[in-house]
Amino acid sequence: MSEEKQSESKEAAKDDLPPVIEPGVYGELLEKKKFKVQHLGMDAMGVEMIEVAAESLLRVAEYLRDNKKCQFDLLVSVSGVDMVDYRLSVVHLYSLSSNESLCIKVRADEKEAVPSLMPIWPAVDWHERETYDLMGIIYEGHPDLRRILMPTDWIGHPLRKDYVENDPRLVWNRR
């Protein structure tokens, strides 16, 4: 009896679709303005997360910065995340007027490219350079995309999961 129940519940769990994610405040706002966004729910701290396609990123960003209801004027950080199959560029924003945070995720395409946010928030300058340096995401439109933390002649992007440690191509590893 109990075994049957268990197997039933297991099957039910298999059929279960991923839970429907309620759109957050800003996601809804963006959707009303006909921007294509994917809602990712809240993170553990209650910060809303949205995923934006690379093409519409700049327009979404401009809207988020200039709209009276959003006013995300402070760029907190840009982080690259290696999800093994693809790479994400994660932007965290903060609003000085409403004290709210927002997290935007952009998926890098096959060429590891993502549009640069330099025209909207110039503060991303060093953050994008760092993400390029450590994760290898190429920010299209960044005026000065160079390595920042690693030496200029370094090979590979260390924070990737497929990074080879002690690469023999580097002079100092040939001992």
Binding site: D43, A44, M45, V47, M49, V76, S77, H92, Y94, S101, C103
Partner: peptide, 14 residues
Amino acid sequence: ECMSLVESPRGFLG
């Protein structure tokens, strides 16, 4: 995932 932010002596530390 989670982004925690605090006010460190130098500013936002996350």
